[in-house]
Amino acid sequence: MKTVIENLQHRYHYAMVVLKELVKTDFKLRYQGSFLGVLWSVLKPLMLFAVMYVVFVRFLRFSDGTPTYAVSLLCGTCLWSFFSEATGMGMRAIVDRGDLLRKIHFPNYIIVASTTMGSMISLLINLVVIIFFGIFGKAEFTWWVLLVPFSIIQLYLLALGVALLLGTLYVYFRDVSHIWEVVLQGLFYATPVIYPISMITSQPNFAWAAKILMLNPSTQVIMDVRRNLLAPDYVDTVWTMIGNPWLRLLPYVLTLLILWLGVHVFRKYSAKFAEVL
């Protein structure tokens, strides 16, 4: 067993060193030249949350009737911001780092992984902010919070799989960025970030639509984090809305399938990236 671990460390040591340095570089360059620097990783989702709160909660009166809805909105905003940023930046990572690929030999997937890891750092910072607001927003912290890291890992794997797939396509077809913007906008409105899922379940003719939305991995992850982190008794999840035990597993299977597809497509075409670029 010790020999296997040593072989793995020797095999991936160079890749891990490159990944670490790229993550540090990307995260520093992301806010280079700005006055507030890293604080923007917190301020951007907070400002987006403020706009959504004023428009959808105060004016349009969106609410699920629970005291934690405002904090749930903040949580959903931060999680969605991570997914949007990680997939968008991951999609352009190979093209933006094309000069590096031609000069240095290292596994190409590290470039995509480094950009998504930079977004993950911002998300972890935002989670601290969410917990802080949750303390004053009547959140119910229970032992279910121990499951939150698993949901965050699932969201990261989902974003990484999408980023690898989009990053490969973007090398050959630049139109992918415009298509993904439209798809991402559609996914945003199909995910209960700004509206509670109860708004759909309360409509008898559309209760089935809520169950379909819950089978979407992005929806499942966001609702799981909200329930386990903030309000165990108030938030619906795939486990409470879907009766079929096999269907409950569908979002998790889709996450792994998307990750596998992204890795498979990326590995198949990554050898020609330097030539195409």
Rank of each mutant, 00 (worst) to 15 (best):
residue 270 S to N: 13
residue 218 S to P: 02
residue 72 S to R: 07
residue 17 V to Y: 08
residue 45 P to Q: 08
residue 256 L to Y: 13
residue 154 Q to I: 01
residue 114 S to W: 01
residue 231 A to Q: 07
residue 62 F to Q: 12
residue 160 L to M: 15
residue 64 D to G: 15
residue 153 I to P: 05
residue 102 R to C: 00
residue 24 K to S: 11
residue 195 Y to I: 00
residue 160 L to P: 05
residue 62 F to V: 06
residue 157 L to Y: 11
residue 60 L to P: 04
residue 249 L to P: 07
residue 264 H to D: 13
residue 228 N to Q: 14
residue 273 F to A: 01
residue 205 N to G: 14
residue 66 T to L: 04
residue 64 D to M: 01
residue 122 S to P: 11
residue 257 L to R: 00
residue 74 L to T: 01
residue 129 V to C: 08
residue 127 L to I: 10
residue 111 I to D: 07
residue 241 M to L: 15
residue 230 L to P: 05
residue 50 A to D: 06
residue 173 F to A: 12
residue 55 V to E: 00
residue 112 V to N: 02
residue 249 L to M: 14
residue 274 A to T: 13
residue 14 Y to P: 00
residue 204 P to C: 09
residue 63 S to V: 00
residue 210 A to Y: 07
residue 164 L to M: 13
residue 25 T to R: 15
residue 214 M to D: 06
residue 200 I to W: 08
residue 60 L to C: 04
residue 67 P to A: 11
residue 88 G to I: 10
residue 240 T to R: 09
residue 117 M to Q: 02
residue 35 F to R: 11
residue 65 G to E: 09
residue 269 Y to H: 14
residue 15 A to R: 04
residue 84 S to V: 01
residue 199 M to F: 14
residue 257 L to V: 14
residue 228 N to M: 07
residue 190 A to P: 03
residue 232 P to R: 10
residue 245 P to N: 00
residue 163 A to S: 15
residue 246 W to E: 07
residue 15 A to S: 14
residue 70 A to M: 02
residue 186 G to F: 12
residue 127 L to T: 07
residue 265 V to W: 03
residue 61 R to N: 14
residue 103 K to L: 09
residue 103 K to F: 11
residue 271 A to T: 12
residue 220 Q to A: 15
residue 104 I to S: 02
residue 142 T to V: 10
residue 2 K to E: 13
residue 78 C to I: 00
residue 111 I to S: 10
residue 111 I to W: 11
residue 8 L to T: 12
residue 65 G to F: 01
residue 47 M to W: 08
residue 92 R to N: 14
residue 140 E to K: 11
residue 63 S to E: 01
residue 143 W to C: 00
residue 12 Y to C: 08
residue 192 P to N: 04
residue 237 T to C: 05
residue 33 G to T: 07
residue 99 D to M: 04
residue 111 I to G: 06
residue 165 L to D: 07
residue 80 W to L: 01
residue 54 V to S: 04
residue 203 Q to R: 10
residue 51 V to K: 08
residue 35 F to Q: 11
residue 116 T to R: 08
residue 206 F to G: 01
residue 39 L to K: 01
residue 188 F to V: 04
residue 76 G to C: 05
residue 225 V to P: 10
residue 201 T to C: 09
residue 43 L to P: 02
residue 20 K to V: 00
residue 104 I to T: 10
residue 213 L to N: 03
residue 140 E to P: 06
residue 205 N to A: 12
residue 20 K to W: 15
residue 170 Y to L: 04
residue 215 L to G: 06
residue 136 F to L: 12
residue 220 Q to C: 15
residue 270 S to E: 15
residue 255 T to V: 10
residue 169 L to N: 02
residue 93 A to C: 09
residue 170 Y to W: 01
residue 79 L to I: 11
residue 38 V to C: 06
residue 9 Q to A: 12
residue 134 G to H: 01
residue 194 I to L: 08
residue 110 I to W: 08
residue 175 D to V: 03
residue 81 S to K: 05
residue 77 T to H: 05
residue 214 M to Q: 09
residue 152 I to H: 08
residue 163 A to I: 00
residue 60 L to R: 00
residue 193 V to L: 04
residue 251 P to L: 08
residue 56 F to A: 12
residue 153 I to K: 06
residue 29 L to N: 14
residue 83 F to D: 01
residue 194 I to E: 07
residue 3 T to H: 13
residue 79 L to D: 07
residue 67 P to Q: 07
residue 20 K to A: 00
residue 38 V to G: 01
residue 104 I to G: 03
residue 12 Y to V: 05
residue 170 Y to E: 04
residue 78 C to S: 13
residue 250 L to C: 10
residue 173 F to E: 10
residue 233 D to A: 15
residue 134 G to F: 03
residue 155 L to P: 03
